[in-house]
């Protein structure tokens, strides 16, 4: 049997809200070490990679590896039936064709149970090579969300340029052009508010804003986001999930013709 109880159930709600517009169906790979998911969007431009380690659950039981194919839109609807402070348990019997979701109120006086039919998903697994990135930018996730939203006013794509001074987002379209420049923070009260650029070499890449906007829906998961860039390599956008794992998005760059 597979059973994973997540005391902070709202993490799962935020996760699914963050990926449901990007990916329709996904295989949850359940292993003794934890829960993972890898899925590309239908146009193969972006990839979602989720890891939730077993030690983030309480308890976590996985007797053998299981693949749970789940329609994320259905899962999102079901998760809307839970409260933010509910404890959420995912359970799957060894020979079952469904995943069971249990929502438990903090005082345990309300228990709801939903049985979700599993779906068969033909999912290509991709090998993501280890990359030494030219630049790694860390910034508040709310700032990232705001910049992406602001740049969308101007056009469909954004050029992100990392230098020793900081990071610059620029866009241009029919109505005009604009940019937002973030300097590296010198002194901040909280690390979560800082902007840092770890630079090996200056790099400038262009990406579709539509996807960045979808990634930025993960902002409620984590106060900070990390963007990793290398020339002509997919962008990595990473949100840490408390102390238990991460939600990563990869986005293929736009290439000059």
């Amino acid at each position: 049997m597979f059973e994973a109880r997540l005391p902070q159930g709202q993490i799962l709600k935020k996760l699914i809200e963050a990926v449901r517009e990007l990916v329709t169906d996904a295989n949850f790979e359940c292993k003794p070490s934890g829960l993972s998911l890898q899925a590309m969007d239908s146009s193969h431009v972006s990839l979602v990679s989720l890891l939730m380690r077993a030690d983030g659950f309480d308890p976590y039981q996985c007797d053998r590896n299981r693949t749970l194919g789940i329609n994320l839109r259905t899962l999102a609807s079901v998760l809307k039936c839970s409260s933010n402070d509910d404890i959420i348990t995912i359970r799957a019997e060894d020979d079952g064709d469904s995943a069971i979701l249990i929502f438990e109120s903090p005082s345990s006086d309300r228990l709801s149970e939903f049985d979700l039919k599993l779906v068969d998903i033909d999912n290509e697994q991709l090998v993501i090579p280890d990359t030494q990135y030219d630049a790694v930018v860390r910034m508040p996730s709310a700032e990232f969300q705001r910049i992406v939203r602001d740049m969308q006013i101007l056009g469909d794509s954004v050029t992100i340029a990392c230098s020793k001074d900081g990071v610059k987002f620029s866009a241009n379209g029919e109505i005009g052009s604009g940019s937002v420049r973030l300097k590296q923070s010198s002194a901040v009260d909280s690390e979560d508010d800082a902007v840092t650029v770890d630079l090996q070499q200056a790099v400038s890449l262009t990406f579709a804003l539509r996807y960045l906007s979808l990634f930025s829906k993960a902002a409620p998961l984590s106060p900070t986001v990390t963007l990793s860039f290398s020339k002509d390599v997919p962008l990595l956008v990473e949100f840490r999930i408390a102390d238990m794992g991460h939600l990563r998005f990869y986005l293929a760059p736009k290439i000059d013709e």
């Binding site: 431009v45 991709l126 794509s157 736009k254 000059d256």
Partner: peptide, 14 residues
């Protein structure tokens, strides 16, 4: 002008 690349060109299918 730029074109959107796809991930298949960067990541290998297992």
């Amino acid at each position: 002008d730029s074109t959107q690349s796809r991930l298949d060109g960067f990541f290998k299918v297992l």
